[in-house]
Simulated assay, not measured.
Amino acid sequence: MTARRPVGLLVAAGIAFAVLMALGVWQIQRLAWKTDLIARVEARVATEAVPAPGPDEWAALTAENAEYRRVTVTGEYAPDSDVLVQAVTERGPGFWVMTPFATDQGWTLLVNRGFVAADLRDDRPLPAGPQSVTGLLRLSQPAGAFLRANDPAAGRWYSRDTQAIAATLSLPDAAPYFIDAERAGEGQPIGGLTVIAFRNHHLSYALTWFAMAGGLVALTIYALRR
Rank of each mutant, 00 (worst) to 15 (best):
P100W: 00
T220C: 10
P152W: 01
V25D: 13
L171C: 13
A3Q: 13
V11M: 10
R40S: 15
T162K: 00
E64Y: 03
R30G: 03
F178Y: 12
I38K: 13
G135L: 02
L61I: 00
R226W: 05
F101V: 02
L203F: 10
G214P: 07
E90V: 15
P100Q: 04
P53K: 00
P172I: 07
W209P: 00
Q141K: 14
R40F: 06
R121S: 14
L110P: 02
S140Y: 05
F17E: 09
N65Y: 02
V111H: 02
D151W: 04
T103E: 04
D122A: 11
G8D: 12
L37C: 03
D122P: 00
T194D: 05
G155C: 06
N65L: 05
S159C: 11
L136Y: 07
E186V: 11
T220Y: 03
D36V: 07
D180Y: 00
E67L: 11
L136I: 04
L219D: 09
V41I: 15
R124Q: 11
A22N: 11
L137M: 12
D36P: 08
G54D: 04
Y68F: 15
V97T: 05
A117G: 14
V45I: 13
T72F: 08
R70F: 00
A206S: 13
F115G: 04
A223P: 06
A154M: 13
I165N: 01
R183P: 08
L23Q: 13
T208D: 12
R30N: 10
D119C: 10
P6A: 15
T134N: 06
L224G: 10
A87M: 02
Y177A: 01
G155T: 04
R160F: 06
N65D: 03
S204V: 12
A12H: 12
F210K: 07
Q105G: 04
W157D: 02
V71I: 11
A78Y: 09
T168A: 15
R4F: 15
L147V: 11
N150Q: 12
S132F: 06
A39Y: 09
F101P: 02
P51K: 06
G94W: 05
V11E: 05
L37M: 12
W107T: 04
M98S: 04
D151Y: 07
A175N: 06
E67T: 05
P127C: 10
P53D: 02
R138V: 01
Y177M: 04
V19I: 14
W58C: 02
A66V: 00
F101H: 00
V83D: 01
R121G: 04
R226K: 14
A213S: 10
F178L: 06
L216V: 11
E182N: 07
A16S: 08
R5P: 15
L120T: 07
P100I: 00
P6L: 14
L219E: 08
V50S: 12
V88E: 09
T103F: 02
D119M: 08
V73F: 02
W157Y: 09
T194L: 02
V41G: 05
F17G: 08
Q163A: 14
F178A: 03
E67I: 01
A174Q: 04
Y222D: 13
Q86W: 10
R138I: 04
A59V: 12
